[in-house]
């Protein structure tokens, strides 16, 4: 018996439109972005031992990102992301954003909306009562890439609000670009195995 989903994701880029006509440039740009995210995750998971200097440059950014979002300091937190940044939380580590629905696929605009939402007193599920969260990061492995760096680390999330604490363990894969302000996040991917089984709502996750 073959295990696995009936019609699972196909590795590699998404194929072109069924008509055979060239894909519009705008649509292709979306596909390219999605392919890039998938490729970024694949590279990080299969990469050799990390580069020490790359880790030294990127680890402080990952640490700050986790600490600031736990502290609900969303202004400085958002400043760590580039204008074209995205956050992708797939339902399964093998998924592709062009093919599979995700828990989250945010652009920078929606990251800003999340930050606002986490302060809105009418966001009942995430502010009443106000949650406490703690992100724990494992050692950061990183590699230099064309625009900056690719980094990854293990991640533990604890969320306490009402009812039993929610704890999740996984891995984050982060692409960073070198900017005048220092390394900044262009893409963040959270791989959370518990999503395959089912979790309480994760409206608080960022």
């Amino acid at each position: 018996m073959t295990a696995g989903p009936v019609s699972g994701p196909v590795s590699g880029p998404v194929s072109g439109p069924a008509t055979g006509a060239p894909r519009p440039a705008a649509t292709q740009a979306v596909i390219d972005r999605y392919d890039g995210l998938r490729s970024m995750v694949d590279r990080a998971l299969a990469a050799p031992v990390g580069d020490t200097e790359a880790a030294a440059r990127t680890a402080p950014v990952l640490e700050a990102e986790a600490r600031l979002v736990d502290a609900r300091a969303y202004g400085p937190w958002l400043d760590l992301f580039t204008a074209d940044a995205c956050l992708w939380i797939p339902l399964h580590p093998d998924d592709h954003p062009a093919r599979d629905q995700a828990l989250t696929f945010d652009d920078r605009r929606r990251l800003g909306e999340r930050a606002w939402h986490m302060h809105d007193r009418q966001a009942w599920a995430v502010t009443r009562p106000r949650p406490l969260t703690l992100r724990q990061l494992g050692p950061v492995a990183a590699w230099p890439e064309a625009e900056g760096w690719l980094a990854t680390c293990a991640l533990g999330l604890t969320h306490v609000r009402r009812g039993p604490p929610v704890t999740l363990a996984g891995r984050q894969v982060v692409a960073l670009r070198d900017t005048p302000a220092g390394p900044r996040i262009t893409a963040k991917v959270l791989l959370l195995p518990e999503l395959t089984l089912g979790t309480p709502h994760l409206g608080w996750i960022m």
């Binding site: 989903p5 629905q101 089912g198």
Partner: peptide, 11 residues
């Protein structure tokens, strides 16, 4: 129908 569902639980 997509093969993989988003699965969540409530108490």
């Amino acid at each position: 129908v997509q093969h993989r569902a988003l699965t969540q639980e409530y108490g």
